[in-house]
């Protein structure tokens, strides 16, 4: 783009608008800044209020005691829900990440511009938009119901969350694989590596940090989900370490159950659980960000 040349002696000066035009612009600027404030205020208010209420009950004992049997009880903690959330989320990650990464590999390395790849891309986009409650209904009718009373388990919750995470992981993987320079693949292929070996030893390691960070964001989001878990994991007051069988519970489900309770101890437990859940989710998000930043530094440093 060649810069336009000005005639000699010409001076380019921004024309001062009329008073009203300047006023309109200033008003718009204020409105735009106001919009940011309007979004930041709920965030601060929410974090402050939840932290204030939650920290009333937050203690080591709260984190390590079983759930009480009565909503009225001031005793009891949320230990089973923490374990449940961790088991269900880790399980969902184990299901969704390998499948999603393979799906991303298919889309970028094998399918590329084929018609089937386009269909998979489209469907995965549609799957991203499926409301999480619908996924809960699906896993309930498809997995829990046929198994009767034994159907409720952490595994069923993992299936629902995994199905929600899958399209996100596929998309992230494809985007990250796309960023791997073609020269690397060509170099590996030229050295005689087969395609699968090239993908496993050259392409994937290069894309790994991005995939890890994208997947962690998906995990963080899944850990906070309530709707898909409501009817598939059952209910329990005790810790259940078994991923495959037995009713379980989760932080989000406990918050939902206690939020509308008329009993103050239950409400306080809901806030305590909310603080715990936010800490878990933020931790996962922060790790994802750090991985991204470190990765970006490494790549830009190498270039």
């Amino acid at each position: 783009m060649a810069a336009p040349t000005l005639p000699a002696g010409a001076v380019l000066q921004p024309r001062k608008g009329t008073g009203f035009r300047q006023f309109k612009s200033a008003f718009a600027t204020v409105a735009i800044v106001g919009a940011f404030v309007a979004a930041a205020v709920p965030l601060v208010a929410l974090v402050y209020y939840v932290a204030r209420e939650g920290l009333k009950v937050f203690s080591w004992e709260f984190l390590t005691t079983d759930l009480p049997f009565s909503q009225r009880s001031v005793e009891g903690g949320i230990y089973p829900a923490i374990i449940g959330t961790l088991i269900i989320t880790v399980g969902a990650t184990l299901i969704a990440v390998p499948l999603g990464v393979m799906g991303g590999i298919y889309l970028n390395e094998y399918g590329a511009r084929s018609r089937f790849a386009a269909i998979v891309r489209f469907l995965s986009e549609i799957l991203t938009g499926v409301p999480s409650i619908v996924m809960g209904l699906f896993i309930y009718t498809f997995w829990v119901l046929p198994r009767g009373a034994d159907g409720f388990s952490a595994l069923a919750g993992s299936l629902a969350l995994g199905a929600l995470m899958l399209p996100v992981v596929i998309r992230t993987s494809e985007e990250m694989l796309k960023l791997v320079p073609h020269e690397l693949r060509e170099g590996s292929l030229a050295l005689g590596s087969r395609k699968s070996r090239t993908i496993r030893t050259v392409v994937l390691p290069h894309a790994a940090p991005g995939i890890v960070s994208g997947s962690l964001l998906a995990v963080a989001r899944a850990a906070g989900e309530t709707a898909p878990l409501l009817f598939v994991i059952g209910a329990t007051n005790l810790v259940n370490w078994d991923w495959l069988s037995g009713s379980n519970t989760a932080l989000s489900v406990q918050i939902f159950g206690n939020a509308a309770s008329p009993f103050v101890p239950a409400q306080e437990r809901a806030f305590g659980a909310a603080v715990t859940l936010i800490l878990i989710v933020f931790l996962a998000t922060a790790i994802a960000r750090i991985v991204t930043v470190v990765y970006t530094r490494r790549v830009s440093g190498a270039a």
């Binding site: 929410l46 906070g224 309530t226 989000s252 918050i255 859940l277 936010i278």
Partner: peptide, 11 residues
């Protein structure tokens, strides 16, 4: 975006 839906509801 990272704050869970149920926490929004509770608040």
């Amino acid at each position: 975006a990272a704050i869970p839906s149920v926490v929004f509801g509770l608040w």
